[in-house]
Amino acid sequence: MGKRHTIEVTVGAFVVLGVVALFFLAMQVSNLSQASSGDGYHLTARFSNIGSLKVRSPVTMAGVRIGRVESIGFDKTRYEALVTMRIDAGIDSIPEDTFANIFTAGLLGEQYIGLEPGGSPDFLRDGDEIANTQSALLLEQMIGQFLFKKAGESG
């Protein structure tokens, strides 16, 4: 009876460790484990199409996460998506002529904003808008254009 009890406790411990490991994995995938502390400043950017960009998506520069998407809205006068980003406080020298692009991590991964710095000596400040943007490239549109092009060549 003592041996059976030991096996049950061991199996129970492995199940608990598995659940804890799944919890940490879920936190990493959902980006909730890296919630910002609220420090930093806001930048906005307008895109004609944001694809599947979501709130809390990373904002990167040179492949390093420097912030997160804080909110996504719709501008009814210009018919564009208005994205507000919170940039970490330590990143305070982003040139005014920086480009904001929406990229996809991998073929079908999450979308994020990649900032490519320009050469301006002036820097973006809290509340500024990034004027140079490139919208998301949608896989469906690229496939449609490819098929349309191939159909035109063969016909």
Results as ranks from 00 to 15, higher is better:
residue 125 R to Q: 13
residue 90 G to K: 09
residue 110 E to W: 10
residue 151 A to V: 07
residue 42 H to F: 03
residue 85 M to R: 05
residue 79 Y to T: 06
residue 13 A to K: 08
residue 89 A to D: 14
residue 14 F to Q: 12
residue 108 L to K: 07
residue 143 I to M: 13
residue 76 K to P: 05
residue 88 D to W: 02
residue 85 M to Y: 05
residue 150 K to E: 13
residue 134 Q to W: 01
residue 77 T to I: 09
residue 14 F to C: 15
residue 148 F to Y: 06
residue 113 I to K: 05
residue 112 Y to W: 03
residue 25 L to A: 12
residue 153 E to R: 08
residue 70 E to A: 10
residue 59 V to R: 00
residue 136 A to T: 03
residue 70 E to D: 07
residue 66 I to G: 06
residue 98 T to Y: 11
residue 6 T to V: 08
residue 14 F to K: 04
residue 48 S to F: 01
residue 40 G to F: 02
residue 47 F to R: 11
residue 66 I to N: 07
residue 50 I to P: 12
residue 42 H to A: 03
residue 147 L to Q: 14
residue 68 R to P: 03
residue 118 G to S: 03
residue 132 N to S: 15
residue 19 V to C: 12
residue 29 V to H: 00
residue 37 S to N: 15
residue 75 D to G: 03
residue 66 I to P: 09
residue 138 L to H: 07
residue 91 I to W: 00
residue 13 A to C: 13
residue 85 M to C: 05
residue 153 E to K: 11
residue 129 E to Q: 14
residue 70 E to T: 05
residue 94 I to K: 02
residue 125 R to D: 12
residue 154 S to C: 05
residue 127 G to I: 08
residue 88 D to G: 14
residue 129 E to G: 01
residue 137 L to D: 14
residue 82 L to C: 04
residue 39 D to M: 10
residue 144 G to D: 15
residue 85 M to D: 02
residue 27 M to D: 00
residue 127 G to A: 03
residue 146 F to L: 10
residue 101 N to V: 14
residue 84 T to C: 03
residue 121 P to F: 05
residue 102 I to L: 06
residue 66 I to V: 11
residue 3 K to E: 14
residue 139 L to S: 13
residue 106 G to V: 12
residue 150 K to Y: 02
residue 100 A to E: 02
residue 23 F to G: 11
